[in-house]
Design a protein around this nucleic acid. Structure first.
Length: 851
RNA sequence: GCCGCUGUGGUGAAAUUGGUAGACACGCUGGUUUUAGGUACCAGUAUCUCACGAUGUCCCAGUUCGAGUCUGGGCAGCGGCACCA
């Protein structure tokens, strides 16, 4: 036993112990409650960053804590190994993505081990291994046969100079990051998964996810975006063509003054043939990123294409515009426009001098209608007095009136409320075959094709005769060739006939393999399930997955709140429908961890504000790094990095070491190895300390297990140690005092062991235990130690703190009131006033209202 | 632009169910030990005020005996927006 804290030595020793004893390698065991704790696996970028350390510290603390609750805990780790950065590194360093990625994995695995995370490494998953992605390919071919997968044209960012498809991230201010060329929108055929078929189920499922943060559920709900509306068909006056639109506001149909189509809409393209100005407009609309944020903030532009659309009810002819904000890929690629009641349409109409026709009047029935403050939700559209609707009160000079109300200027629909009109207008349309009610989701099908090399090959063969044919199960996996050179100009697979040349599995004719690869979200959508079936080479999953599913606790960054988590929920259902896994949801509880910041900004290489965890580990050890991460902020909040904060945690561990070793020395010199703590024999201080101990155990248990506020858990342990420190002299005097100190220190080590497992491992042994702390259970609370004789009451006069009193725990309300009114601070503040009311909050405070 | 979150001392934060604002730390100031620096230990530390006391949780209104916490409206920062992972 050393008298100075030497983290490196004890940490490596503890880690060796866990590995040799296989402490974290688990199997299915029906005699214990299972607990599957999962942290989002990292992209192997080269080194761990602080965000990883934080994420995995949280997961590890929860895992170790649950072990101490006697559960069968499984905590796996793996690598989200496909992705764009490997291709960038390949270009920069002239190294194949596979080699670069695998070297990174080997380095980062050692870093994780050095941090002491309790993973079952036998379950490690690496998504770029064919053993993994073959099952993803297999599922895709099954889904293709089932019709869940289909191919359609979709828009990508096209770099005309590098002749390559760019990710949104690679488009900077509308230009390609390498070439600087203006990026164009280009339509190419791509594969899609019909997530929209599951939209309703994914929406409904959110209600059951009460272990998820409310904000994440709200975000997903908004993302799925269920809306009820109508599909409406407009006839083109000049031809037999029809134009279909979807609207959430069919009640405003009579206010349509134009319709707008996407630049790439067939009508727009057809009219452009003899219209150079329109050609020019379409060409300009093409130069633009595909990111939604860019489209929403760009200048809204349009142009009359020279056609008229016939209003399905009024028969009126309205102009057809093409507009850069209408997207071919969304809905029908066309929208009906009601400038009076839609803000975007209003602005567009103002810009191009289009008619604005009011058809909705505010329906609050009041004499004065303050348009700015009409709250759609609060207007009682059912019981409106139509006589009182005042059309003139709506000021449409400044902005649109987007609220609901009563229909005006709407011919036979006049006087209907918006709500009534939303069913009656679609009904009227249905009778004449011009439309119907429809439920629309904002959610779009999941495009999974990527025109990139470093991803799982899409298992499809394109045959000139048979079309797209799934690769037969016996031919899987379609292995990605790993020995390649990346140039940045398209995928190398396109230049590898040995990869793409093949025969059609159906007719045997010469055919070509898909050279596109899967979106990396495909791999991250089911890795949690594969961890349950390590080594299974005959199927995607086996029955072990049914034992472990669902994940009991998922921990990861808030930035994944929508995409990754929604895709995984979808994928889980796909696997469920194949009979591969049980349950509807993959993640029972979700903890979304905040970011690690430095100087108020997210740590990133481009900002140059990163702190390498390795340096912290080398200087202070893993326990200090973990302790700082858990102490600096609650897990869901962002965490501000602080060098001096780290130093402070190191200081605490040094102090803990010193306190325990001093105690052990005393144990030896006093010869009280076998003294048993007798709670009844303690003096006043001793009883107070023991009370604090059990209060702390109970409270820390709640903080870690239920609230996940590790920062307050640590603070409470420190409070306990501070109190013990203050009593150190009196504790040292008696045998029972030293026994109590022994008891407190053992409990402290147990409570801290999930957070700082190495130092507690060593000190636990040094204190004379012959078991490892990793196998110990959480300390028991003695309820009798929590009882108190008196309770402190806070006394307020008119809500202001004036005094405090100690009251017997069993005092009744009347005697508490009496004591309160007699208290000096209260008397001083109520003199000359009469007491109007006395409020007694049990076990807390008394508020005296006086004036 | 749309969706979601956050806002408390010099700093990170705490206040769990509407009930003592600032626990626990970092930093700073002073002291003890030390030749010195560092370490360790002790004391102080929201603001104003000599003090009594008053004020104080981004801003403005409201509900309440009582609001950091609830409601309405604003401002600022952050995350996501479908090809970064």
């Amino acid at each position: 036993m050393s008298h100075t804290y030497k983290p490196e030595q004890i940490e490596l020793e503890a880690q060796r112990y866990w590995e040799q004893k296989r402490c974290f390698n688990v199997t299915e065991d029906d005699s214990k409650e299972k607990y599957y704790c999962l942290s989002m696996f990292p992209y192997p970028s080269g080194q761990l960053h602080m965000g990883h350390v934080r994420n995995y510290s949280i997961g590890d603390v929860l895992s170790r804590y649950m072990r101490m609750q006697g559960k069968n805990v499984m905590q796996p780790m793996g690598w989200d190994a496909f992705g764009l950065p490997a291709e960038n590194a390949a270009m920069k360093h002239q190294v194949a993505p596979a080699k670069w990625t695998r070297e990174n994995i080997n380095y980062m695995r050692e870093q994780l081990k050095r941090l002491g995370f309790g993973y079952d490494w036998d379950r490690e998953v690496t998504t770029c291994d064919a053993d993994y992605y073959r099952w993803e390919q297999w599922l895709f071919t099954r889904l293709y046969k089932k019709g869940v997968v289909y191919k359609k044209n979709a828009v990508v960012n096209w770099d005309p100079v590098d002749q390559t498809v760019l990710a949104n991230e690679q488009v900077i201010d509308g230009r390609g990051w390498r070439s600087g060329a203006l990026v164009e929108r280009k339509e190419i055929p791509q594969w899609f998964l019909k997530i929209t078929d599951y939209a309703e189920e994914l929406l409904q499922g959110l209600d059951q996810l009460d272990g998820w943060p409310e904000q994440v559920r709200t975000m997903q709900k908004n993302w799925i975006g269920r809306s009820e509306g109508a599909e409406i068909t407009f006839q083109i006056a000049e031809s037999s063509e029809k134009l279909k639109v979807f609207t959430t506001r069919p009640d405003t149909l009579m206010g349509v003054t134009y319709v707008a189509v996407a630049a790439e809409h067939p009508l727009s393209l057809a009219m452009a043939e003899n219209n150079p100005a329109l050609q020019q407009f379409i060409a300009e609309a093409k130069v633009m990123s595909t990111a939604e944020a860019d489209m929403e903030t760009m200048e809204k532009k349009g142009m009359d294409i020279g056609l008229k659309a016939i209003h399905p009810i009024s028969g009126e002819q309205v102009p057809v515009y093409t507009a850069n904000f209408v997207l071919m890929g969304y809905g029908e690629g066309a929208v009906m426009s009601v400038p009076a009641h839609d803000q975007r349409d209003f602005e567009f109409a103002g810009k191009y001098g289009l008619d604005i026709k009011q058809v909705i009047a505010p329906a609050d029935g009041a004499d004065h209608v303050d348009v700015d403050n009409v709250d759609v939700e609060k207007v009682d559209v059912e019981n409106v007095d139509v006589e009182k609707v005042n059309v003139e009160k709506v000021d449409l000079d400044e902005k649109a009136f987007t609220g609901k109300g009563v229909l005006v200027n709407s011919a036979q629909f006049d006087g209907l409320t918006s709500l009534q009109a939303q069913s009656e207008i679609p009904q009227a349309l249905e009778k004449i075959g011009r439309g119907n009610k429809r439920i629309q989701y904002r959610l779009r099908d999941w495009g999974v094709s990527r025109q990139r090399y470093w991803g799982a090959p899409i298992p499809i063969i394109n045959c000139p005769q048979c079309g797209a044919v799934a690769v037969p199960e016996t031919d899987l996996p379609v292995k990605l060739p790993e020995d390649v050179i990346i140039t940045g100009e398209g995928s190398p697979l396109k230049n590898m006939p040995e990869f793409y040349q093949c025969q059609c599995p159906e007719c045997g004719a010469d055919a070509e393999r898909e050279t596109d690869t899967f979106d990396t979200f495909m791999e991250s959508s089911w890795y949690y399930a594969r961890y349950c079936s390590p080594g299974c080479d005959s199927a995607m999953l086996d029955d072990r997955a049914k034992y472990w599913a669902p994940v009991d606790q998922y921990v990861g960054g808030i930035e994944h709140a929508i995409l990754h988590l929604l895709y995984a929920r979808f994928y889980h259902r796909l696997m469920r429908d194949e009979g591969l896994i049980s349950g509807d949801e993959p993640f029972k509880n979700l903890l979304t961890q905040g970011m690690v910041l430095k100087d108020g900004a997210k740590m990133s290489k481009s900002k140059g504000n990163t702190v390498d965890p390795q340096g912290i580990i080398d200087q202070y050890g893993a326990d200090t790094a973990r302790l700082f991460m858990m102490y600096a902020a609650p897990p869901e909040q962002s965490l501000e990095w602080s060098d001096s904060g780290v130093e402070g945690q190191y200081k605490f561990l040094k102090r803990l070491w010193k306190t325990v070793t001093a105690h052990i020395d005393s144990l030896r010199s006093e010869g009280d190895a076998n003294v048993v703590l007798d709670a009844a024999a303690l003096d006043k201080d001793g009883k107070k300390l023991r009370h604090k101990l059990h209060q702390t155990i109970s409270s820390v248990n709640d903080d870690i297990g239920r609230r996940h506020t590790f920062n307050t858990a640590i603070a409470k342990v420190r409070e306990l140690l501070n109190m013990m420190e203050k009593m150190s002299h009196s504790l040292q005097q008696s045998e029972q005092g030293r026994a109590l100190r022994h008891n407190v220190l053992e409990s402290v080590l147990l409570m801290l062991s999930p957070i700082v497992p190495h130092i507690t491992h060593q000190l636990w042994l040094d204190m004379g235990n012959d078991t490892a702390i990793v196998n110990e259970l959480w300390p028991q609370v003695d309820a009798s130690a929590l009882l108190e004789d008196t309770i402190q009451y806070v006394l307020q006069v008119n809500g202001k703190l004036r005094d405090k009193i100690e009251v017997a725990a069993d005092a009744d309300k009347q005697s508490i009131e009496k004591l309160a009114l007699e208290a000096e601070g209260v008397m001083r503040n109520i003199s000359g006033k009469s007491v109007r009311k006395v409020i007694v909050v049990p076990n807390k405070l008394v508020n005296i209202v006086a004036n």
